[in-house]
């Protein structure tokens, strides 16, 4: 494959710098978005895809400024609609690596419908949802992922809304790739982004992202380095679910529920749930997705990675099948189809 974007067909090894645009990054200092941008710019050169084949599409919100900072093709769309724009792009040019960058408000509130349908169709696009559980760009209203009772500018007495769990939503839509990571867990984030990039089909990645202005420390109780080993569990395909600083705790499937157990006292690794991201049925992934702190460790990693035909592939296969069957369309013939008559 030809690498690089100099248009001369010569092989150029791309680097992170190739993906940095000339635009000044304008997120608040300390925002978790910087970390995600940095990991993205680190991962893309590794994929062997020429730069001109990347398209970043976004909606509205802090996260949606992302395309301006990527030196790729970019489309800053309108609120919530990035998956629809991306679907149009991908169907028309399946060669492109099409990414959607969205947030919890953009993707799950105003754009919930498009997110759902892009996932159930299995359009081969990569969706990264920055979840900071708050509206940042509009300065601090609660979002669809804000916890029940959260006090914000628009909920001074606390919200009376149940939050939505993005991973559960993606699994319900039967997205073929569903994963989660954390802005500050940079290596893990890079791993998850690369896995998403290499997945054929829709990839949905939730990133816990800290908004240090309006919702600072939202994920600290479990994601902070000092506690994360005990309060988070990393999902790894084919491995039992073990966590804890001392690797002494695990997750066991008991009937239809998951439970936290301590290894020893007759409980061994073989009693634990072994993670299977390729399992066609998303039911266990759904159980995992529902684990939340403090009752459970918060899971990160790849919940699901299965293969199914992609929407763009199927659409284009029908075009080819129609041409194979009926021949390339003949306009003269088309216009003359049906009953015609001649006036001399």
């Amino acid at each position: 494959m030809t690498l690089g974007g100099n248009g001369q067909g010569t092989v150029v090894k791309l680097t992170k710098r190739d993906f940095v645009s000339d635009q000044e990054v304008r997120w608040c200092p300390g925002c978790g978005d910087y970390a995600i941008l940095a990991q993205m710019q680190k991962v893309l050169p590794e994929l062997g895809i020429p730069r001109e084949k990347f398209v970043f599409v976004s909606g509205i919100g802090c996260s949606s400024r992302f395309p301006y900072y990527m030196n790729t093709y970019g489309f800053h769309g309108i609120h919530g609609r990035a998956p629809a724009i991306a679907t149009g792009i991908k169907v028309c040019n399946p060669d492109l690596s099409v990414w959607v960058v969205t947030g919890d408000g953009d993707g799950l509130s105003i754009g919930g419908n498009h997110l759902l349908h892009a996932m159930r169709r299995n359009v081969d696009i990569k969706i990264v949802l920055f979840n900071n559980r708050i509206y940042g760009l509009t300065k601090g209203q609660y979002s669809p992922t804000s916890e029940f009772g959260k006090k914000t500018k628009s909920s001074p007495m606390g919200t009376v809304e149940m939050p939505v769990n993005p991973i559960c939503l993606a699994l319900a839509a039967e997205a073929t790739f569903v994963a989660r990571s954390v802005d500050r867990h940079t290596d893990h984030l890079a791993y998850v982004l690369e896995r998403a990039a290499r997945h054929k089909g829709v990839a949905f990645v939730e990133v816990f992202q800290n908004c240090n202005i309006f919702n600072d420390g939202a994920f600290e109780p479990f994601a902070d380095r000092s506690v994360k080993d005990d309060r988070m569990v990393v999902l790894e395909h084919g491995k039992p679910l073990i966590f804890g600083k001392n690797r002494d705790k695990g997750i066991r499937l008991n009937g239809t529920t998951l439970e936290v157990v301590t290894l020893g006292d007759g409980i061994t690794e073989s009693d634990l749930l072994v993670h299977d991201e390729k399992r066609p049925d998303p039911a266990i992934a759904f159980l995992l997705a529902r684990m939340d702190y403090p009752e459970y460790p918060v899971p990160v990693g790849v919940f699901r990675a299965v293969e199914k035909p992609t929407y763009d592939e199927l659409v284009n296969a029908q075009i080819e099948a129609a041409i194979a069957e009926r021949g390339q369309g003949d306009l003269e013939k088309l216009l003359r189809s049906g009953d015609i008559w001649v006036i001399e």
Partner: peptide
Amino acid sequence: AEDEIAAMCAAIGAAFAG
């Protein structure tokens, strides 16, 4: 499309793609 908005947006995406 899933709705009217998506139809318009997808058409824009298609136009962007040429």
